[in-house]
Nucleic acid binder design. Sequence first.
RNA 1: GGGUAGAUGCCCGAGUGGCUAAAGGGGGCAGACUGUAAAUCUGCUAGCGUAAGCUUACGUUGGUUCGAAUCCACCUCUACCCA
Length: 282
Amino acid sequence: MIRPYYICGPTASGKSTLALEMAHKLDGEIVNADAFQLYRGLEIVSAAPSAAEFAQVPHHLYGVLDPTVSADAQLYVGLAKPVIAEIQSRGKTPIVTGGSGLYLKFLTHGAAPLPTADAALRMEMDARPLEDLVAQLQQLDPVEASRTALQNRRFVSRALEICLLSGQKASGLRDGWEAQTAEISSQLRGIVIQRTRPDLHARIALRTRAMLDSGALEEVAALAEFSNNCGKAIGFREIQALLAGEIDRATCEELINAATRQYAKRQETWFRREKWLQARLT
RNA sequence: GGGUAGAUGCCCGAGUGGCUAAAGGGGGCAGACUGUAAAUCUGCUAGCGUAAGCUUACGUUGGUUCGAAUCCACCUCUACCCA
């Protein structure tokens, strides 16, 4: 069984290119680990590999989700595991490439035994004031409440959701999951691409411009009604504002650049904590 | 040439005598984060210092005042209006 090779790093750092290189070197096939490149019809905005790149090496899990489905880390793992196993069964190396830290984390280290997201419950919680959710969480599971960022509505909602769906304390269910992560990490191999900020920022700017020049507007216009799912992609809202005439092209470009830089920073922070990844300075 | 409005920290912008190293936002930097994650949230952001504190800051120069980003005068620049 050939272990997968992971290629991580911030957006625009050159993961796709390096993945091709590694695929040739390791006789591998590329598996997507990017939350938005999963979607069909979002290729340009999500900066998916080009047709020329796809043609060089088999690529998996790109454009496989319909924009109507709302993805999450669990769903991703469900898609990725069989694909990886299938590649391994043919004696090839899975080259798992992407920048979605949480998705990768679930894939590499598994999920804690927690209940799955419940759309109806979330809708109900979304309608309630945050203080209300916090109060209920504090009552149901004070331990979890004490270690949750209570200003973060998403985190509070999820913790409460776990309590309500399972009938148990989120803190109890989550404990224990981390115990074996070190052991798992020691079995993994992969790299994180690192670039200097000026270099990365320049690459981001170039990519944003190319994106806007090559059909991103049409892509967003076509996906307008599914904006609740892939609309979270960077560039989506900005381009919608441009299409609506609310901002001009230069402003749109700068807004996308800034959002992308901020995202890249968050990715760097995330991957920095994944000690098993070998740094590769470029 | 005449008139009016304005010039605030990296940017936008509030502040119209002391509580102002200067609200708020953006940007930047750092961080958190196991099922919305390209999401969501947190902290810091003039310089020097571990600190007390010191120094430099609200277009320029000067003035009034115990005290000025705030009041006065000159100048410079910007926008708009009239010629």
